[in-house]
């Protein structure tokens, strides 16, 4: 399946290059190429995931390699939704390169043969837990990108000397709506994912909470996005501050993903519980 994943990466690379060119040159034809090759990549990627599932015999979201591949697949899907709902093509210039990096990382990491998925496939709660969280992180990444673009555009408007960004980024309201909606979706998925995780841990070990660094970061992330959603709905925090919170939230997501394993979390991809 490596060769097919290579084809997926090629399609995403074409999409990334054309998205960036379309952003710089504002050409519709370039954007069309980007969207088509992204669609082709997505279909192939779906095939890769299904094939992995069939061949490996477990849900294709277990090892680090699989997680990266699944995450980039979820990101493509989320970006496609943003594109469909808001026509915010500028997001692609930022999202597609990241998707390419994730996909190539998935290609470079060799599958871990010692990993045994047996312990995890006993209950259906585990795949639900991981799938929900991966989609939640994809949604938070969308929030992050919309927030960054909001901050750039808002700065242009405040400073009043318009650079090239001004003409290329979507309107403030559009980016605000994208991040509000994506944050709401992300928060819902995160909540459900955490609940699924807690139940899974309980059913397997009889423990709900293990004071793991990853668990702590995840709860912090949840709190932050909850605060963000609350503030947005009561309208005390709008625009800039909410956007900064969206950026901060993503930093926490990255901590959960990258730093928590370094702090000795048992919650590492592909490793069986000790």
């Amino acid at each position: 399946m490596r060769s097919l994943l290579l084809a997926v990466l090629a399609a995403y690379l074409i999409a990334a290059i054309h998205s960036i060119l379309a952003f710089v040159n504002k050409r519709r034809s370039l954007q069309r190429v980007a969207e088509w090759s992204m669609a082709v990549g997505f279909v192939l990627h779906t095939a890769v995931l299904i094939d992995d599932w069939a061949v490996d015999g477990h849900y294709p979201l277990f090892g680090l390699r699989e997680t990266l591949s699944f995450l980039s697949w979820a990101l493509v899907g989320s970006y496609a939704l943003v594109l469909y709902h808001y026509r915010a093509q500028a997001v692609g210039a930022l999202a597609m390169p990241v998707i390419c990096i994730l996909t190539s990382a998935a290609l470079l990491i060799s599958p871990d043969p010692s990993a045994s998925a047996a312990a995890f496939s006993t209950t259906w709660l585990f795949p639900i837990h991981t799938t929900l969280l991966v989609f939640a992180y994809a949604a938070f990444f969308i929030v992050f990108m919309a927030s960054v673009m909001y901050l750039i555009q808002e700065r242009e408007l405040k400073v009043k000397t318009f650079s090239g960004f001004f003409h290329r980024l979507p309107a403030l309201r559009t980016m605000n709506e994208i991040s509000t909606h994506a944050a709401a979706v992300g928060l819902t998925l995160l909540t459900l994912g955490l609940v699924a995780g807690v139940f899974w841990s309980w059913s397997l070990h009889g423990k709900m909470w293990r004071n793991d660094p990853k668990e702590i970061f995840a709860v912090l992330t949840w709190l932050l996005y909850f605060v963000l959603a609350m503030f947005r709905s009561t309208a005390n925090w709008r625009g800039r501050r909410a956007a900064w919170l969206g950026v901060l939230g993503f930093v926490l997501v990255l901590c959960t993903f990258l730093i928590a394993p370094l702090l000795g979390s048992y919650h590492v991809f592909g490793l069986a519980l000790k």
Binding site: Q153, L157, L172, R173
Partner: peptide
Amino acid sequence: SAVSISYMAVELGKKIFD
């Protein structure tokens, strides 16, 4: 992009409110 004062209001409005 707008090149007259009277049209600037439209351009700025679109950049804020879409």
